[in-house]
Design a protein around this nucleic acid. Structure first.
Lengths: 192, 192, 192, 192
DNA sequence: CATGAATGAGTCTTCATTCAT
DNA sequence: CATGAATGAAGACTCATTCAT
């Protein structure tokens, strides 16, 4: 019917459009007017579904961040073995795929995120992930290796654009490098 | 003293304050009013020295980005050996130290930077660095290793906060990991 | 009463006040703040109804200029006789009465109008009117007579202030002079 | 010598550029910065020669308006004959040629001029001219004819653009029509 | 569920003007 | 004669937010 008014899913649609625009043009530069226009509703309609602009981000963070939270919970229940760490990386890679726009938004709007109420939550998550992957007793080089493994997986969103090849191949290569880094960290620490 | 009007250095002082605030609170959220107030001048004074707000960023980018440009020029004149790549990383590490606030700003305001006129220049710089460090003929995993080496050095600005230890030690550890990654990339490709 | 918030007519009221002020004090010297204050609303309210300041002028031009456009359409459908021309002048005189403030604004802010997007439209209108009233084959003196007939009718807005007498008498006199000019142009051309 | 610094004629050059820009883009929209840039001097330099922006206009008005003032003085000393009126028109036509940019400026920035201190002076001049050309005892139609004669000569600056032909021919035609109008006014009044 | 209308605070930017040098 | 540096006031415009309907 062309402009059939979707009922009930407006909240979802707001989130979709908002995330897309936030990731693409930045949180501050994306106005509620733009979001409303993309959805062909009025700004006031947004306020029926969300209390504030920040609230939209918050909801995105909560909804899309769940996989990561679950991953952390899972990780904390596993034995601290090498295999656990490798599996954590594999699952993290998969989680990044799904939550890519959110991650891109976080990555590209760090300064903004820090001021938002989610800032701390986000930081905590990252610390938790980092705590699962590295061994605080290990030599610093090995800890750096582990954190780099984690961090490097974010690189595929932009730093790897220079490299030719399809996205799936890159994803695999990045994961391989990350797994390698953790293995090296583990091996080295085991010797010490 | 106190409110002595410094002569001639106003432009410099604007740049200093602007960079600090842009890096800390983000480009969009930093208003010219704030910058002016920090300097105890009027907004209009800023416009005497810079045509627009973007112009301030541009000037920062040009002034502080020079070391990086010089590094790229240097790199392009060297033979494409492993040792060159290692030296590039070492110098890159040093350059990051000096241009740290700028880099932090770039890192944390990517969405903004992309829309600014410096966006493309910045991207080109990164591509140029990446082209110097990786071998486009090498297997993808090795290319990823090289780019990760580069990229990981940015991590020390925030991802490594979780790790205990002083900044200098971290800097060294990060560099070591990066050098290692490039060596691995090189060794593996040499075999292939 | 008093500060009763009139509903629905705000747009109209903005146009009224704006036209009055633009005509009186000039477009550039009339700020949106002034318009808003006259209406006892905020500047932002103006922006709810009009996208830009220029947009207000544009809307005035479109709404109040319609009689003139219709007159041109009418003229283009008539035979090119003397009587048509005389009737055109009579109707033009009447149209000027109605759209007087707009015409005064146009007349007094020509430099501004030229830079606005309406400039060209305005010019086209005037050319169209002029094309209806003069005969491009006629001797130049007669063409000038015809255009002068048209143009002189604008004079009553200011050049005739020096003459004593009431407005209605002046209007008639101006029309008579204009009709005369066109008759002369016609007679002379007919002989040649 | 390329950028030879003209000495002593800066004041004159400011007037020239200012008039040109005022006439072209309007008084309000022409900033002192623009004028200064056109002259390749600083804004502050303008203030050495003129106390204010309005002062520039004032000086233009005084310097370039002199021919008109002299014409008025001349007219007031002549007998009030038809021939005097015709000569007034001829001289007025010539004066318009010389002071054309100023006249264009006046014509196109009426709203602005009215607010400036020259407004009244300008009005007085026009009244004086009008008083010389028309007979306050004559029937209104004839007074209108006379004033139209005067007023119509301004038309050549824009209303006559539609007519093909070179500027000099138009000038002559306009003058002829104007002379005619005054003759008619005179003849008619003489009969009454 | 959603809109129309409006607000208050704030944005970047421009301007005419000043004055010590 | 002229400039470099600065100011105070104001400009147009945008934004997140509110609320009666």
């Amino acid at each position: 019917m062309g402009s059939t008014p979707r009922r009930g899913d407006t909240r979802q649609r707001i989130q979709d459009v908002a995330l897309e625009l936030f990731a693409e043009r930045g949180y501050e530069k994306t106005s509620l007017r733009e979001i409303a226009e993309h959805l062909e509703v009025t700004k006031a309609a947004l306020y029926y579904h969300f209390k504030t602009k920040e609230d939209i981000v918050l909801s995105l963070f909560q909804d899309l961040g769940r996989p990561l939270d679950e991953l952390i919970v899972w990780g904390e229940q596993q034995p601290r073995t090498l295999e656990t760490k490798l599996e954590l990386l594999r699952r993290y890679s998969a989680a990044l795929d799904i939550g890519e726009p959110l991650m891109r938004f976080m990555q590209e709007n760090q300064a903004t995120v820090r001021e938002l109420s989610i800032g701390q939550i986000f930081k905590n998550r990252m610390f938790a992930m980092s705590a699962l992957i590295r061994d605080p007793e290990a030599p610093m080089v090995d800890q750096v290796r582990s954190v780099t493994a984690l961090f490097s997986m974010h690189a595929r969103m932009f730093a790897l654009q220079a490299i030719e090849g399809n996205a799936e191949d890159k994803r695999k290569a990045v994961l391989e490098v990350a797994l390698d880094l953790v293995k090296q960290a583990h091996a080295s620490s085991a010797h010490g």
